[in-house]
Each structure stands twice: as structure tokens, then as C-alpha cells.
Simulated assay, not measured.
Amino acid sequence: MRKATIFVITAFSIILGIMSFSKKIDAETLDIKGLTRNEFFDSSGMSHGKYHDRYDLGKVMKKGSQIKISASQKGTLNLLNDDNNTEKEYKIGPEEQTIIADYDSVPFVETPIDGTNIKVNYEFSGDTQNLAIFNSGDNQKEFLDNWEKSKSSFALFKGKNFNYFYR
């Protein structure tokens, strides 16, 4: 009887440990391929599109949630939302840092325009939800139904040659 009780308690503890461990881990790695500079844009003085290429991290960070982030090389993390006055920009690099969202925001990493590739490691904690993403060719009704159910203020529309962040 005593051995059976110890076995049940041990098995239950192991199962709980595995379940809590799997809930805490939300770490990912993103490989970003840098773009090469475009001499036409550089010499023309135009900046349209020059600093707008970004990679989404697939989440909406609710106010107070955190992202632990590091990158193999220097880069820029943007927390974008629906108010230019509350959007934030952070410099990232090899040293891991934790960033707290002051407002509901969507994290993006800017694409380097000097041709360098970077690897970004990140982990979310706190209240986050998946970013509603529509890829060209997806079922529109299914996307809209899922977006409506999520009650998210944000969505990302991805076409063949563009991304549009709805906020």
C-alpha cells in the first residue's frame, strides 16, 4: 500500500512538472536574412520603404507582458501599436534583455539593410496572444472568423511582395 501511494504521488508530481514546464516555455529563434543596400534609394535621398522591412514575432503583447530577447548581431526591436506616441524602439544585441510592454503592442525586428544576417532568440512571458496573420491564398472567412474570436486589435496581412500591419 505504501509503495503504491509513493508511486502515485511520484507519477503525479512528474506529470505536473512536465505540464508546468511546457506552459512556461515559449522560446523561439528567428533567422533574419539581411537586405543589401539599394544605391538608387541611397543616392535619391528617398527613405520610403528603406527602413520599413520587418519580421513579425507572431504575438500580440498585452500591457505588462514581457519579451526576453537577444540577437547574434546588433538589431532593432519595434513594439508597434495604434499610437505613434506610445510605440517603442529598442536596440538589441548579444546581451539578453527583458523588455516590458507599456501598451498592447506587436513586436517586430527590423531587417538589416547592410546585408548581414542575424539570429534572434526570444521568449514571451505574461499575457500574450497569437497575432492574427492572413497569408495570400488563405481562406478569408476562416481568417476573419478567427480574428473576430480573438478580439485582437491587430492583424498582419502578408502578400507576395508586401506585409500590411493593421492597427
Rank of each mutant, 00 (worst) to 15 (best):
K3H: 12
K3I: 09
A4Y: 13
F7K: 08
F7T: 13
F7A: 15
T10I: 15
I15V: 15
I15S: 10
L16Q: 04
G17Q: 05
G17S: 05
M19C: 12
M19N: 13
S22A: 13
K23M: 14
K24E: 11
D26K: 15
T29Y: 04
T29G: 08
D31W: 04
I32E: 06
K33D: 11
K33Y: 11
L35A: 13
L35M: 14
N38H: 01
E39N: 11
F40H: 07
F40V: 12
F41C: 05
M46P: 01
S47G: 07
H48V: 13
G49R: 01
K50A: 10
Y51E: 09
H52F: 06
D53E: 10
Y55R: 14
D56H: 11
D56P: 09
G58T: 02
G58C: 06
G58E: 07
K59Q: 14
K63S: 11
Q66I: 11
Q66L: 14
I67D: 10
I69G: 10
S70L: 12
Q73M: 10
Q73W: 06
K74C: 03
L77T: 07
L77I: 05
N78Q: 14
L80T: 11
L80D: 08
N81V: 05
D83H: 00
N84I: 11
N84K: 11
T86F: 05
E87L: 02
E89F: 01
E89T: 15
K91R: 12
K91D: 15
G93H: 04
G93N: 10
P94V: 03
E95T: 12
E96Y: 01
E96M: 10
Q97Y: 00
Q97G: 05
Q97D: 01
T98S: 09
I99P: 10
I100R: 06
A101S: 09
D102G: 15
S105F: 02
V106N: 04
P107R: 00
F108C: 00
F108S: 02
V109D: 04
E110W: 00
P112M: 05
P112F: 04
I113S: 15
D114G: 08
D114F: 03
D114H: 07
G115F: 00
G115H: 04
G115T: 01
G115R: 00
N117F: 01
N117I: 03
I118A: 03
N121A: 10
Y122N: 03
Y122G: 07
E123Y: 03
F124R: 01
S125P: 08
G126D: 03
T128M: 00
Q129C: 04
Q129G: 12
Q129V: 03
N130C: 02
N130V: 08
A132H: 03
I133Y: 06
F134A: 04
F134Y: 13
F134T: 00
N135T: 13
S136M: 11
S136C: 02
S136K: 12
G137F: 02
G137I: 04
D138Y: 04
D138E: 11
N139T: 02
K141A: 10
K141W: 05
L144T: 11
D145N: 12
N146H: 06
E148W: 09
E148M: 09
E148G: 08
E148A: 14
K149N: 15
K149S: 12
K151F: 06
S152R: 02
F154G: 06
F154N: 08
A155C: 10
L156D: 02
F157N: 07
K158R: 12
G159I: 06
G159R: 02
G159H: 06
F162K: 15
F162A: 14
F165G: 08
R167S: 14
